[in-house]
Write a protein that binds this DNA or RNA. Structure first.
Lengths: 365, 365
DNA sequence: AACCTTTTATGAAAGGTTTCACGAGAGCGA
DNA sequence: TCGCTCTCGTGAAACCTTTCATAAAAGGTT
């Protein structure tokens, strides 16, 4: 049972294949009666144009790829990515574009990139420096980098350093001196490079310490997995090692929540005995008990902005842009500080006004 | 700047395009030195095969579509779908297959289906009876229906009715007589048909009432949105109307959690004043406070099973199957009953042994 | 050297659509 | 009736790969 093609329809309607194509894509060019005759034939035969053939010819599939450097199962299990995809999806939906999640195929991101039937990529958590990006260039499709730096492509980031600074600053101002810092596990090949998001957040923490005349020692930093279990075991292990922090700075909410769980198990009460600040503001942060004080970043918005940028580049070959969205310290129940909002970038700080404006414009577009 | 094609490589390496193709796909057929010459040329030129052309020829893209009847943004915002996609993704990843989320394009699911460059579809929450499924047939690609009935395709469901029965039964056994039932908002065109998941869960509740010599009146049933807010306002509204339930049966966890929130706000304590049972067992159910007693269904497993079924059909044209996975009542803190697990289908009940066995096999495959 | 077999490489078709360039009629004014 | 302009429709190329059938080259045997 062969699939019905444009030739079958043309035969049945007694016209050329070109006419059938026109009937679908540019009916004005044909007499109205011809159009209906063709459409009727198509319906009777159950014809639907072959998307691959169409894509091959028009060099456009109407699908955007989102490139993750990790297995897809861990992507969907991570609420951060869910929010991010929600942002991307809201734009693709509105534009009538498909969304393909691209993850390493059989361990090879390169193969995955080469094989993905997409018009462009949004790349998350992968620096342009990464070797994986080379195949993208080959592929010749445009891409936008999120949470990473890019020389030759547009990028969307948030003010990680500023947010981290605000978080650390709050704890230090409140007199905390025994602070446990939880950060991401680094891939072995870049252990001491402090690249990307991890590096920027760490730099923010460090700067706050320095501004308080202190140093953030390596022994106070624990690198672990970005999961609930990762934060839990990291805190528990530090505790077992005799570390008795009065506060925790976690580079991600899920790790912060894990640490709170471990603390509770160990008889510490949050925020009485232990103040905790996370990063990201995933939906769970507000729902946890106690609700997590955290550095809010506009996750969904980040997805939206990146996607709009990519689509514009696709449609009009728009210029490259580097967008940095603001972050904001959100005080909830896991700290005892007074609620005063501190927005980083363009609001709280004077020096970045121009940047700030550009950001707001970008976000509102 | 035209993209580099197989012709360019052939020219540079001084061979035919066929040789280049072989060098990539079946290098055994060529002399080793030729292969390296070709591969070198390809690397220098930065050649990557065009996925559309490849797909057009081989009639296979290596991408599976997941069809949702709702906007993509609401999909990713829903933890149920996240878990489901996690299951699908774990299989596609392992097989080196891409994953395309397909949602209505400009409101039209038909257009989306026609345009999606995929080899097959997993359809969730859409009955085969739905008009939307017709275009799928046209398209000529296989599909598997999840959480819906299908005559002409494989399907994967869970024992919704059994799970709902167990939940209602527990509450009735414990003496509750004023039970508020929260169920899904039905699309206007099928208001009183009680189709699909909603219908099956409702039937389970009803059967338990009947077995206790009671009737589940329409006035005790509230239809609302499957969101936190939906459950919250539904409970609040019932309360405002003077309804004073001692227990809540919710057809989804997120609604149950919403109802708990409203109850708390209204001064009811769960489970002391109000016992609540949800359905689905999303991750949040265990993390909520109090932890939600619910009917567990294997969401991730459902995704896995459906995807394996689809891939098998794609690869070997395997037979159609109708799989029904068991559900299980999980007692947590939102009820005060003793913890005794009750697994539906094939374990708790005798009559479904054969079915049960087939299920377990399917799940383990 | 002649012949046969195996290895290695190629030409061309096929896959299904869109679109460019062009042709056949039809309509109309002179 | 001629010639011009529109309208409506068509043939064929282009998009890029893979693969079938086959040719050419190489290697081996007598």
């Amino acid at each position: 049972m062969r699939r019905v093609t444009i030739h079958d329809v043309a035969g049945k309607a007694g016209v050329s294949t070109a006419a059938v194509s026109h009937a679908f894509n540019d009916p004005e060019r044909l007499r109205a009666t011809t159009v209906t005759r063709i459409l009727d034939a198509a319906r009777e035969l159950g014809y639907a144009p072959n998307p691959h053939a169409r894509a091959l010819h028009s060099q456009r599939v109407g699908v955007l790829g989102v490139l993750f450097p990790q297995p897809i199962a861990t992507v969907f299990a991570n609420p951060f990515f869910a929010s991010f995809l929600e942002g991307i999806g809201s734009v693709t939906d509105e534009r009538g574009i498909g969304l393909l999640t691209v993850t390493p195929l059989g361990g090879s991101l390169e193969r995955a990139i080469a094989a993905a039937p997409v018009d462009g990529f949004v790349i998350i958590g992968l620096d342009e420096r990464h070797a994986e990006v080379a195949p993208l260039r080959k592929r010749g499709v445009p891409f936008v980098v999120v949470d990473g730096d890019a020389e030759t492509a547009s990028s969307v980031n948030v003010d990680d350093e500023g947010g981290a600074y605000a978080a650390a600053n709050l704890l230090l101002d409140r007199g905390h001196r025994k602070i446990l810092v939880l950060t991401f596990h680094a891939p072995p090949d870049e252990l001491d490079k402090d690249l990307g998001v991890r590096g920027r957040r760490l730099r923010g923490y460090r700067r706050a310490f320095v501004d308080h005349g202190l140093a953030l020692g390596d022994d106070a930093i624990v690198r672990t997995f970005v999961t609930l279990a990762g934060g839990d075991t990291a805190f528990a292990k530090a505790w077992a090692d005799g570390v008795r922090p009065t506060a925790v700075l976690a580079a991600s909410d899920i790790m912060a929540i894990g640490a709170m769980r471990a603390a509770k198990r160990l008889g510490r009460e949050v925020p009485k005995d232990l103040e905790v600040i996370g990063f990201d503001d995933i939906p769970l942060a507000a729902a946890s008990d106690p609700a997590l004080t955290t550095v809010h970043q506009p996750i969904t918005e980040k997805g939206r902005v990146a996607t709009r940028l990519l689509i514009r580049e696709l449609d009009e070959g728009g210029p490259r842009e580097r967008i940095v969205l603001p972050t904001e310290l959100l005080l909830r129940e896991s700290t005892r500080a007074q609620a005063t909002k501190s927005r980083t970038l363009g609001v709280a700080k004077g020096g970045t006004d121009r940047e700030g404006k550009r950001i707001l414009k970008a976000a509102a577009r």
